[in-house]
Nucleic acid binder design. Structure first.
Lengths: 112, 112
DNA sequence: ACAACATATGAATAGTTGTTCATGTGTTTA
DNA sequence: TAAACACATGAACAACTATTCATATGTTGT
């Protein structure tokens, strides 16, 4: 095995060592997959400035209550939104500023 | 229509006005959808520190050349990677620092 | 306790997507 | 120029996902 092949092999090895482990990579992909649907993005944008109940989100986006609820479930499971009960309604809001940051960064890339 | 209903209506309207238009939202979702697959994320991570040709990516990730090429096509179409020819090989690299920023932000959220 | 309201959820379906296999295109070398 | 190499691409299939419809759960006011 000559020098250049050995260097090649060690480069390959180095890259593999820098790679985050499978589980983290899968979680990361799942996080982005949640952002990868325009209706979920719309829902997050409705919550950008103020919290809202499910019916209001459905009204703003002209969607069925069921569809919104299903998507909120996904957002909830990935800790992108949080919620609290207020009487009969359940009020949703963005979980933290990470969500806003990620949306903003994505927007920067898209608007170039 | 009483006062509270009017306020409700105007809130709904305000939110709709802040919402980015359909096309932008769709592009944004598409961008994140590209990040939403673990093999594409792996490919981007192999390119995090240094540029690589298709075969090397395939070798590092233990994937077929075809599968890698198909995914590079998606990354290319969304301007997440760029490429240049070098002899028989085509060398891929991350397109800009946006890619690194987005991956890093996502990682922050996941590692909490 | 009961009716009305707000939300969640399960099942089914239609549409989307990642991989594989086979083959095509483009480049180098003998 | 023919063979070998590196990569791209089209078709097909299996796996996944978002929405709809029907219904269940939980809360309020009477």
């Amino acid at each position: 095995m000559d020098q250049s092949v050995m260097e090649h092999e060690s480069t390959i090895k180095e890259i593999s060592e820098c790679m985050p482990n499978e589980e983290i990579l899968y979680d990361l992909a799942e996080l982005f997959r949640v952002f990868g649907d325009s209706t979920r993005i719309k829902i997050m944008y409705t919550l950008f400035e103020s919290e809202l109940c499910v019916n209001d989100i459905a009204e703003v986006l002209d969607m069925t209550q069921s569809a919104v609820s299903h998507q909120l479930r996904v957002l909830k499971a990935n800790k992108l939104v949080k919620f609290r009960r207020d009487g009969k309604s359940i009020i949703y809001s963005l979980d933290d500023d990470h969500v806003r940051s990620i949306l903003a960064l994505g927007m920067e890339h898209v608007e170039e």
